[in-house]
Simulated scan of single mutants.
Amino acid sequence: MTTLRTPGPTIGVVGGGQLGRMLAEAAAPLGVEVVVLDPTPDCPAALVARDQIVAEFDDEAGIRELAARADVLTFEIELADQDVMERVSEDTGTPVHPKPSTLETIHDKLVQKRTLEDAGVPVPPFRAVDDADDVRAAIDDYGAPVMLKARTGGYDGRGNVPVESKSEAEDALEAVAGPAMVESFVDFEREVSVIAVEGDDEVATFPIGENVHEAEILRETIVPARSSEAVTERAHAVARDVLEVMDGRGVYGIELFETTDGEILLNEIAPRPHNSGHWTIEGAASSQFEQHVRAVLGWPLAATDLRSPTVTTNLLGDVDDERPARLTDLDEILETPRAALHWYGKRQARPLRKMGHVTLSADESASDTSVGELLERARALEDAVTFRP
């Protein structure tokens, strides 16, 4: 093994949103510096990263500059261009993790599903669609509703449109506005996710989380998920199978359906730290962000044990239009033991935009605290804060 040292290397991150911000926060105690590339001046990560290069995610000159200043490149947003990153890596010798080939697989959801299905990973029935007749044929075969998904460009629920009846097919395709696919609607007991880590010669998984979505946006994550031991084991097994398909080191957010029959089906994969893993900062022995830093550098991974039951609630822009972001009425969060506020530093609030999150962990000595009780307390903390113009 290469001798590790600190102060250590520099990681170049394509993307400077909240994930880049939390990556930089996790890297600093390890003596690792972070430089981010993002088109928004003074992006959320800029406050805590070593520096920011202001450039678009596919700007080859900008990514070359980033590579020149880094020992390894990674990304915190799927809008990173895999072809540009591949060329830059080949020309400069700066490695990229996860590898651009993984981004290529992930970018097209149809390719992603076909690749995983071919590898034996359980997925819902799906097919490509070219027009409204194809959507209606899918409803004939799968039953209504079906989920229409943009094959490219969608993430964090964007680009997903439920189609309740054949009469909605044209409008749904217009909303997706591009190449699309259809999935059968899964009759699920709950949505869960596993944050999995591919290291240099080791793999780690965090305890599974239970996710609550509304309007295709993640609202809450509950850990541990209220699933049986058998379902939990199956979820971890599927997550490890997914890692076998992906190429390159790093954290992968693996979203799954737990069906009413107790089966596990893959929903989607994010080849980066994921919103459903934010609970790990306070709730686990290490955070997903520290693990990503360690993994992309080829360093040993840390422990992933659960410290105590933990709930994360997202703070979304509860505004009708775009306005300067200002969060008030924080007293209750700040006064609550084992509650943690994470503000992302975004300058503008927009409807349903993720502006921050609140994590609430149970007292480690209070073994009788249920995750249901913890969830209700976390929701009360979220309800107490407000956005002001």
Score class of each variant (00 low, 15 high):
Asp118Ile: 11
Phe387Asn: 01
Glu104Asn: 15
Ile77Pro: 00
Ala119Lys: 09
Glu25Ile: 15
Gly345Val: 00
Val72Tyr: 10
Arg114Lys: 10
Thr310Lys: 01
Glu290Ser: 05
Glu233Asp: 15
His292Glu: 01
Val251Gly: 08
Val146Met: 03
Leu256Cys: 12
Val84Asp: 06
Asp140Glu: 12
Ala215Val: 04
Phe188Ala: 04
Val34Asp: 03
Ile281Val: 09
Glu56Pro: 10
Asp305Asn: 13
Val146Leu: 05
Ala230Asp: 11
Leu66Ile: 05
Leu266Asn: 03
Ala28Trp: 13
Thr102Gly: 01
Leu316His: 00
Val242Thr: 06
Ala302Tyr: 01
Glu198Ile: 04
Asp329Leu: 12
Asp241Leu: 15
Asp71Pro: 12
Leu47Ile: 15
Leu37Tyr: 04
Arg5His: 13
Lys354Val: 05
Ala325Cys: 12
Thr10Asp: 07
Glu198His: 10
Glu373His: 06
Asp108Ile: 08
Leu330Cys: 05
Ile222Asp: 02
Ser228Phe: 14
Thr386Ile: 08
Pro271Ser: 13
Asp91Asn: 15
His97Pro: 10
Ala61Gln: 14
Asp58Trp: 09
Glu198Lys: 14
Ser228Trp: 08
Leu243Gln: 10
Phe387Gln: 05
Glu263Gln: 07
Asn314Ile: 04
Arg219Leu: 13
Glu255Asp: 12
Gly356Cys: 06
Val238Lys: 11
Val14Ser: 10
Asp200Thr: 13
Asp134Phe: 04
Gln291Thr: 01
Pro39Gln: 00
Ala380His: 13
Met246Val: 13
Ala24Gly: 09
Ala235Cys: 13
Ala132Tyr: 10
Met22Pro: 09
Ile139Glu: 03
Ala68Ser: 15
Leu19Ile: 10
Arg158Gln: 08
Glu76Thr: 06
Ala235Met: 09
Leu330Glu: 04
Ala177Val: 03
Asp156Trp: 05
Val34Cys: 10
Ala325Tyr: 01
Lys113Gln: 09
His342Ile: 03
Val176Met: 07
Gly262Arg: 01
Glu60Phe: 11
Thr359Trp: 00
Pro44Asp: 06
Glu174His: 11
Phe188Thr: 06
Leu330Tyr: 09
Pro44His: 03
Glu216Ser: 12
Leu265Ser: 05
Arg234Ile: 07
Ser308Asp: 14
Pro125Gly: 15
Asp71His: 14
Asp200Phe: 15
Ser89Ala: 13
Asp59Lys: 07
Glu183Ser: 01
Leu103His: 04
Pro309Cys: 06
Thr280His: 07
Ala325Ile: 00
Asp58Tyr: 07
Leu218Met: 02
Ile217Ala: 08
Pro124Ser: 02
Thr115Glu: 08
Ala339Ile: 09
Ser184Gln: 12
Trp343His: 09
Val88Phe: 02
Pro124Met: 00
Ala325Leu: 14
Leu4Ala: 11
Gly153Tyr: 08
Ala144Trp: 04
Ala144Tyr: 00
Met355Tyr: 03
Thr359Val: 14
Thr10Leu: 11
Leu23Gly: 12
Ala80Cys: 06
Val296Glu: 02
Thr312Trp: 09
Thr304Ala: 02
Leu341His: 05
Asn211Tyr: 07
Val358Glu: 07
Pro162Trp: 04
Phe185Leu: 07
Ala235Phe: 02
Glu60Leu: 11
Glu332Gly: 03
Gly17Tyr: 15
His97Arg: 09
Gly250Met: 05
Ala26Val: 06
Val319Lys: 01
Val203Ile: 14
Leu352Tyr: 10
Gln52Arg: 14
Gly8Ile: 08
Leu334Asn: 04
Pro29Ser: 11
Asp320Leu: 02
Ala303Glu: 02
Glu364Gly: 12
Tyr142Asn: 01
Val146Tyr: 02
Gln348Ser: 06
